[in-house]
């Protein structure tokens, strides 16, 4: 064990002190949210009354805006996932197979939204959406066009990593030379191989859409996040409860993505 004293690694004690302090600091706000949501008024006692209130019919009216916001957000999720699957994914496959020289251009385009602050894009989205509203009406789902742009960097990366990991050109050549049509190549060779990347992309898209606030608030749409802000003024407890739910939901989504990633790794190493 004398080698340990020379190595770059921290000593066991140092490691656990750093990680322990970090874990404690990061857990405090989450515990605080849970404690806050369980408070029974100003008495100092705890109960589940705020949780029960969400589901009681009498007070349901208060939360209509919240449930409407969640419904709208789910609709936006569906359309945004469709944008990823129908616009981004086919373009990525096409570029990989036919225009490999455009790959760096596509990557650059997909990274841009991360470098432009949402609040800056919003300044440009407002005039664009006055045209969109004339064409499609001001339906909540039209927000997906804007959110789809914000999602691009996150959706691009898992699919790109998956494409890089499989020999997509070789697989296509093999399938073609065995007599497969382009439909079969796509449906039975390419898409099954990209399954984990595509799923990760979709989950990340959902997580980003559910957390999006900036664009929705400026384009005056009621989504999950904007509804949380509204409800927070009248009933901070319920807002906190839903924030905890959303956090747990996002954590589960990301755990699934992690699992998908490791499944992919196992298959490749096997």
């Amino acid at each position: 064990m004398s080698a340990a004293s020379f190595s770059a690694e921290p000593r066991r004690v140092t490691r656990w002190i750093i990680l322990g302090v970090a874990a404690a600091l990061f857990v405090i706000p989450i515990l605080a949210m849970i404690e806050f949501s369980l408070r029974a008024g100003q008495t100092g006692g705890y109960d589940f009354s705020h949780y029960a209130a969400i589901f009681t019919a009498g007070r349901a009216g208060t939360y209509d805006v919240l449930f409407q916001g969640i419904t709208n957000s789910i609709g936006i999720c569906v359309v945004t996932v469709l944008i990823v699957l129908v616009l981004l994914l086919p373009t990525m496959i096409l570029v990989e197979l036919k225009y490999p020289r455009l790959r760096s251009v596509l990557e650059f385009i997909c990274i841009i939204p991360i470098t432009i602050p949402s609040i800056v894009l919003v300044v440009g989205f407002i005039p664009v959406y006055s045209v969109v509203a004339r064409m499609f009406g001001s339906n909540p789902w039209t927000l997906s066009f804007a959110v789809g742009i914000i999602v691009l960097p996150y959706a691009y990366r898992p699919i790109a990593a998956n494409i890089a990991a499989i020999e997509i050109v070789t697989l296509t050549e093999a399938a073609r030379s065995l007599g497969a049509g382009w439909g079969q190549v796509l449906g039975r060779v390419i898409l099954p191989n990209l399954r984990s990347g595509i799923l990760s992309s979709c989950f990340i898209t959902i997580a980003v859409v559910l957390g999006e606030y900036t664009i929705a608030s400026f384009l005056s749409q009621n989504t999950f996040q904007t509804a949380l802000v509204l409800v927070q003024h009248t009933d901070p407890y319920v807002a906190v409860i839903f924030a905890v739910f959303a956090l747990v939901f996002a954590f589960v989504l990301l755990l699934i993505i992690g699992r998908l990633g490791s499944l992919g790794r196992n298959r490749r190493s096997a």
Binding site: L87, I112, V128
Partner: peptide
Amino acid sequence: YVVLFLAIPAVLA
């Protein structure tokens, strides 16, 4: 799509 919802808004902004 990218021109309509990324390039145009960014330039307009």
